[in-house]
Design a protein around this nucleic acid. Structure first.
Lengths: 332, 332
DNA sequence: TTGAAAGCGCTAACAC
DNA sequence: GTGTTAGCGCTTTCAA
């Protein structure tokens, strides 16, 4: 019957050796402040601890140390590990915690949880800090900020919090350079419903600097389906029609691939397609897309690392920029 | 500078109202043991807590309550969220925790961590219990068991621990029934390197009861690539050749699909293919496979729920069987 | 109805 | 070198 065997405490270890609790504590923590412990007793304590299978109790330790060595990865929505983006972030956060010897708390706010519930949990001291994305509810952000708990955000910069970003500007430039090299003079961006993103702007700038025509069309439904406006665009006469579709992300790109196949538009002959993210795929896709590869795993692990630094009182930059790379596939 | 504002404690609340700490505690926890608190003071305390934005400190509470309300999802290896299986489990565990008001700790043992490190962390009291899979290191299992910490495993039954399983037997039966209905009289199982799995046995039984020929071939490399033996099998004359390949999982199935396409084997005309898992895909695959759909998300969320029950002293069955369903795609 | 006191297991001042 | 002491913030007897 799973009744916890009564836990072995520091007191047990100390008693076994015949020393005070604090001697044991000092030895087992390698603390050298306030007096040393002799090598002899030191050895005894270490051995006793090992024999007894002593485990420091994390709650007791957190309480007195005033830190838990736990990092929270927080999603201010119901999380979907089916999104490659999310899956990569979780993996990265786990990796980051492992590197920095922290524990990872995964927390996602479901529809049944209020802003208040989230704050309650986030501020209960269960974690030393929080990694979260730029779509964090503003009320939550305010409360975290005023509580003074360390927070690192991604992937969009924020004036109020340190942020891990990816070098979208260079990514866009690389993609556009690649298109220009392939002879494209006109492309459009299949946007997320929002068109005022930094990504759009980056592409606009890149297009400009390469002297290429550029337009933006929001894809339908926020899932990258092809809208009527987009259909029209693709039916324009050859000299007005864009020759490349640059997409908000890989999902949008794959949908475009499907659309082209269904409508007998040759890829990349009639239309080149570029994605974004370098999302992991399953299964192996038939058509490998050209995409801007973003190290999302690294984004999260870096965020964790920065978080630990902040907690430990180190200075961290407000913006950490991670490089992206262009991966050329079959669609350009 | 992210210096924590000094936390608001129960004492602060009590002081503001002018009552004792314990009165505040009783009210805020709705504890009714050992005397009540008058409605008047009750209201005052509640209000003061709200005004001050009081948050109970989780470590302090865990310490005295002797439980943390944290559940650990433990992978005794480096976890790969790119595997749909793993991603689904994480999502399920998160869901389960949300339902049962627990926090989720995600912990994966990297190559740099010893068995001892893992036990240390798992037994530090940071979590009340552990959900983990059947491939847990035996030494770790022993130590968890002897420590008496609640553990729930999946997906294979264990004599020593409660386990959440899927009804592989019925799954196999459904798949084979489906094949038989389509006129297949001979199929083979593309196995994981291990061939002594319950899944293989289930298929063998199902084949037998439907009077169908059945053989097992381990796929290559543990990733479902086609082995030489398998190539030979597929080159047998029509009357000896299996007409269906039933696969260890969807990954194996998709590889088989690719192999068939490359080798001009018509699907399902010349070879039908059946997968296992109902893994989430990205992007949308061109060929939708017929597969045994396993509710992996539900497996994990159920495991969490059982874990909480065990911790709370409730009795749980040693085996919890979750149903699977056959999803028919284009490959049969 | 309320409060004082003990203590969860641990760490870190300080005194011996 | 070593032990004593005082908490960390909270819950829970027990006495008033």
């Amino acid at each position: 019957v799973p009744e916890f065997n009564s836990r072995i405490t520091l007191k047990d270890v100390a008693k076994k050796v015949g020393v005070s609790v604090n001697a044991a504590s000092k030895v087992l923590n390698n603390t050298r402040s306030s007096g040393q412990v002799s090598q002899a007793t030191r050895g005894l304590i270490l051995e006793a601890a090992r024999e007894l299978g002593y485990q420091p109790h994390s709650a007791a330790r957190s309480l007195v140390r005033r830190r838990s060595d736990v990092v929270a990865l927080y999603f201010d929505r119901i999380m979907d590990t089916g999104e490659p983006f999310t899956a990569a972030l979780i993996e990265g956060a786990e990796l980051g915690c492992r590197r920095r010897q922290q524990s990872l708390l995964l927390y996602s706010r479901g529809p049944e949880q209020t802003v208040d519930d989230a704050c309650r949990k986030l501020l209960s001291g269960i974690a030393d800090g929080i990694v979260t994305d730029s779509w964090l509810d503003i009320a939550i952000m305010d409360r975290l900020l005023s509580a003074g708990i360390p927070v690192i955000q991604y992937p969009e910069s924020s004036p109020r919090l340190p942020c891990v970003m990816v070098d979208e500007s260079t990514g866009a430039r690389q993609a556009v350079a690649h298109l220009a090299e392939r002879g494209h003079r006109r492309f459009y961006f299949r946007s997320y419903p929002r068109v005022d993103t930094y990504r759009v702007q980056s592409y606009a700038n890149a297009a400009k600097s390469f002297g290429i025509e550029f337009s933006v069309i929001p894809a339908a439904d926020g899932y990258g389906f092809v809208s009527d406006a987009e259909r029209e665009l693709l039916k324009l006469p050859r000299d007005k029609r864009p020759t490349a579709a640059v997409c908000w992300n890989d999902e949008f790109a794959f949908r475009m691939v499907n659309y082209c196949i269904e409508n007998n538009i040759r890829i990349p002959g009639e239309l080149a397609i570029v994605g974004y993210d370098g999302a992991r795929t399953f299964p192996e896709p038939v058509v490998k897309i050209t995409t801007v590869d973003v190290p999302w795993t690294e984004v999260a692990s870096r965020a964790v690392s920065l978080l630990v630094d902040v907690r430990d009182g180190k200075d961290v930059p407000m913006e950490t920029l991670l490089p992206v790379t262009l991966t050329v596939g079959d669609t350009t």
